[in-house]
Simulated scan of single mutants.
Amino acid sequence: MKTNTIWKGGQAFESTQHNNSKIEMDGNHGFSPKALLLSGLAGCSGIDVVDILEKMRVPFADLQIEAEADQTEEFPRVFKDIHLNFSVVTGEENRDKVIKAIDLSLEKYCGVAAMLKKNSKIAYTLTIQTEAV
């Protein structure tokens, strides 16, 4: 994996990866690098959960992941506690399968979680919604 990050002025940067996908970061007006890391965790786990639920043939209509992190007070300010809330639109009868998918993601498959767990506690909650909001 390789990226190229270019300073655009002020605290703004643009990062490009091998397939020419681009993302902007900005310490003042956009996603900060730490917010991108938190979003990366949610996206990494979300991809796993979707794949696992599809393999289990669990019907679901929506998946949303809210990620929140507490940071240390001292510098460098790093994540210490991370909490994910998975909200899935599916039947209540699928709760155990969704829990299994999340556990497999966070414990086995998600590389971002594996890296972050070396320094931060990652916990989650699950909300099952029976219809889309």
Rank of each mutant, 00 (worst) to 15 (best):
P33K: 08
V133I: 13
N20K: 11
T125N: 14
G9C: 07
E66G: 10
L63D: 09
Q17C: 05
F79K: 15
M25S: 05
G9I: 03
V78T: 14
E54S: 10
A67C: 10
V50S: 03
I102F: 12
E92A: 15
G46N: 10
Y109S: 03
Q11N: 06
Q11Y: 13
T5D: 04
M56I: 06
E107R: 06
E68W: 11
E93V: 15
N119K: 15
M25I: 07
S39G: 11
K55C: 05
I122S: 01
S87N: 10
T130V: 14
E92C: 12
T127M: 06
D103Y: 11
Q64S: 12
R57F: 09
G91T: 10
A67K: 13
A61G: 14
A67D: 02
I102W: 08
P76H: 08
G91Q: 09
I122N: 01
K108H: 15
I82N: 05
V112M: 09
F60L: 01
S105T: 07
L106K: 02
D81C: 00
S15W: 03
K2W: 01
E66C: 04
A12F: 06
K97W: 09
G9D: 06
D62M: 04
G30Q: 06
F31L: 14
S32I: 00
L63S: 08
D81S: 08
Q129I: 15
K22D: 00
G40Q: 02
E14N: 07
R77Q: 15
N85Q: 14
L63Y: 14
K108D: 14
T90L: 13
A67L: 02
N119Y: 14
K22H: 07
T125Y: 06
T72I: 07
V133C: 10
F86D: 02
A114Y: 15
L84A: 09
K2H: 07
V58M: 07
A61M: 10
R57V: 10
K55N: 06
G91I: 07
D81I: 05
D51A: 13
I102V: 13
I122M: 05
Q11W: 09
V49M: 07
R95K: 14
H83P: 00
I65A: 03
G30H: 09
V133M: 10
K34Y: 10
T3L: 12
F13R: 05
R57N: 05
M56L: 12
R57M: 04
I47Y: 11
I23Y: 02
V89A: 08
I52Y: 11
D51S: 12
I128C: 05
F79P: 06
C110Y: 11
T16S: 12
I23D: 00
L126C: 12
K121G: 03
I52S: 05
Q129K: 15
A113S: 15
E14A: 03
E14Y: 07
P59S: 06
E74W: 05
D96P: 05
G9W: 11
G46M: 08
L37Y: 06
V78L: 14
D26Q: 00
T72Q: 12
L126F: 13
A132H: 09
I52D: 07
C44A: 03
G43C: 07
G43F: 00
A67E: 04
V98I: 15
